[in-house]
Design a protein around this nucleic acid. Structure first.
Lengths: 228, 228
DNA sequence: AAAATGTAAACTGTCGACAGTTTACAACGG
DNA sequence: CCGTTGTAAACTGTCGACAGTTTACATTTT
């Protein structure tokens, strides 16, 4: 565990305390400040944030229900250690949601939304050029999330983001990326084109296929390396 | 609000208190003991269950994150009042998950799982005969849930059940059922056959189409009646 | 009579403390 | 030297109480 960004904590007034704590903790866990498997010490966090344990516990329970933490009775909350088996499951779900999002996005797309897609296409290209795997990973997620946003289904967006967050807890999440960098760009180009051409069926199928491929590549990379 | 089933509360030992409260409250809300829009009074529930407010609050926060309750700052938790707009969203998501589940279930199906599907097929038939809309609604959900279980993806199952629970909060959820009763049985027969024949593509397509149809029927029924 | 204002009750948000369990560790026995 | 047992520290789970906000109601004003 590591330093706290106490700045945001001060914005008491509007948001409720547990929401602020929730966001703060989520950010820190996803940023890697806590290791998977590590226990979260309620008292310590309460002391660091200068609040009592009650709101901390409520926030942690929220993180547990979103799949980022794990509750063990009388032992506390632990950062979840996502296993390949679960990544497999999550990828399948993400694929189904991606396909739905692609269909709806293609159906609803309007020209003024084009920059929201092209922005991330551009960023991905830059990161491929620079061989910046981390940057590419983020731009890639942002691209897909933009599609879900355009799909205009708030519940879908919430679930999608939840799945992405959980998957990012998987230690070797970006293991398969290096090999994909080149091919990936062209696939995303086609996806963006199908959406901007208002072709739901095509966008849906491309996305379904794309996510399935990504999953296979990752799982193959894991079995190849066995780095744990 | 109404009576409490205090029986289950006694099983302290194994499960944690907030889990018991969570299940208890969830059951009561879904059973209709609380009206959509109604406020949940923490103190009253704490008194009724004979515990303090702390575990109650943690359980309620969980229910809020699962979409059953709504948090309003400094005003408390309210039973969510699901609107047609959101049912529309949830149906689309459920459709995508149904299709995925159908594909995976058809791929993984083994003969010894047949009774799990046929049981609910039988129940649906009985309820159609008796024109018992409520019973049919439950058997129908159980049938689809059985498919998701056979798909063998625990995360998918959790999400699926979450969506079904939220949809059941929609007041006119069963509005469209009466008209469907007859046709529906044959459709489900085909779905079950595709799964037991290990035909993923067919099962997936049938389910996708089926859910879409159900959504259209319901939304049409709502607009027709406008009963709110 | 309707609107505005002020006040008390009700309720949520947060806190500090205690009870019960788990964990870490030292003393003991093989 | 290794395993066992017992004890203390650490931590979670729960509680009762208080502070601050919202809500309901009675009073006043137009």
């Amino acid at each position: 565990m590591a330093e706290f960004n106490v700045d945001e904590i001060k914005e008491f007034q509007s948001r409720s305390l547990v929401e602020v704590i929730f966001r703060q903790m989520e950010g820190m866990i996803l940023a890697g400040n806590f290791q998977p498997g590590e226990r979260i010490n309620e008292s310590r966090i309460a002391a660091l944030l200068g609040v009592s344990r009650a709101p901390i516990r409520e926030a942690l329970r929220l993180l547990a229900s979103s799949g980022i933490l794990e509750v063990r009775a009388n032992r506390g909350m632990f950062v979840r250690d996502i296993q390949p088996r679960e990544v497999d499951e999550l990828y399948d779900i993400r694929g189904a949601l991606d396909a739905l999002a692609g269909e709806r996005a293609a159906a609803l797309f309007r020209e003024d939304q084009r920059p929201r897609l092209e922005r991330w296409m551009g960023e991905m290209a830059v990161h491929v050029e620079a061989k910046d795997v981390g940057g590419y990973y983020r731009a890639n997620i942002n691209f897909h999330t933009a599609i879900v946003e355009i799909a205009g289904n708030e519940n879908l967006l919430a679930m999608y983001e939840g799945i992405c967050k959980r998957m990012s807890l998987f230690r070797q999440a970006s293991l398969s990326l290096p090999g994909q960098l080149g091919v990936s760009l062209q696939k995303h180009r086609k996806i963006a084109d199908a959406i901007t051409a208002n072709d739901p069926a095509k966008a849906g199928n491309l996305l379904r296929h794309h996510t399935l491929e990504a999953k296979k590549t990752l799982l193959r990379a894991i079995k190849g390396k066995k780095t744990t």
